[in-house]
Simulated scan of single mutants.
Amino acid sequence: MVLATFANVSLAETFDHQHKTYAQVLENHVQWSENGTRSTVDYATLKAYPNNLNQYLEQLSGVEKSQLKTWSRDQQLAFLINAYNAFTLKLIIDHYPVDSIRDIGTFWQNPWKMRFFTLLGEEMHLDQVEHEIIREPGVYNEPRIHFAVNCASIGCPALRTEPFTAKQLEQQLEDSTERFLQDETRNRYRDGRLEVSSIFKWYREDFERGWQGIDSLDAFFLRYADSLGLSEAEREELREGAVEYRFLDYDWTLNE
Rank of each mutant, 00 (worst) to 15 (best):
H125S: 13
R160Y: 05
N141M: 05
E130W: 11
F147N: 12
Q172N: 01
T165N: 09
E122H: 14
V139Y: 06
P163W: 07
L169I: 08
A158T: 00
E130I: 12
G155I: 12
E162L: 05
Q172Y: 00
T161K: 10
E123H: 14
A148N: 06
T165L: 10
K167L: 10
F147I: 00
Q171S: 10
Q172F: 00
Y140F: 15
I154T: 09
H146M: 06
A166M: 01
Y140E: 11
N150W: 12
T161W: 00
V129R: 15
V149W: 06
A166S: 06
R144W: 07
I133R: 01
M124G: 05
F147A: 14
P157Y: 01
T161L: 01
L159T: 02
H131D: 14
Q171F: 09
Q168F: 01
E142N: 06
C151N: 08
R135A: 11
E123Y: 10
R144N: 12
F147L: 01
P157S: 02
C151V: 07
R135I: 05
P163R: 08
Q172W: 00
H131I: 10
D127A: 14
Y140T: 10
R144E: 06
L159I: 01
P163F: 08
T161F: 00
R160N: 11
E170H: 09
E132R: 15
P143D: 04
T161S: 11
C151R: 14
E162G: 04
H131T: 07
I154K: 13
E162A: 12
Q171E: 14
V139S: 05
N150V: 14
G155W: 13
P137L: 03
S153N: 10
T161E: 13
L126H: 07
E136P: 00
L169G: 09
V139Q: 07
R160H: 10
E123F: 04
Q172L: 06
T165C: 09
T161I: 13
E132N: 15
L126S: 07
G138H: 02
C151H: 13
D127K: 14
F164R: 05
Y140K: 11
A148Q: 08
Q171D: 11
C156V: 03
T161M: 02
Q171P: 00
I145F: 13
A166D: 02
P137D: 06
L159N: 03
K167F: 12
P143S: 06
G138I: 05
T165I: 09
H131R: 11
T161H: 07
M124C: 14
C156D: 02
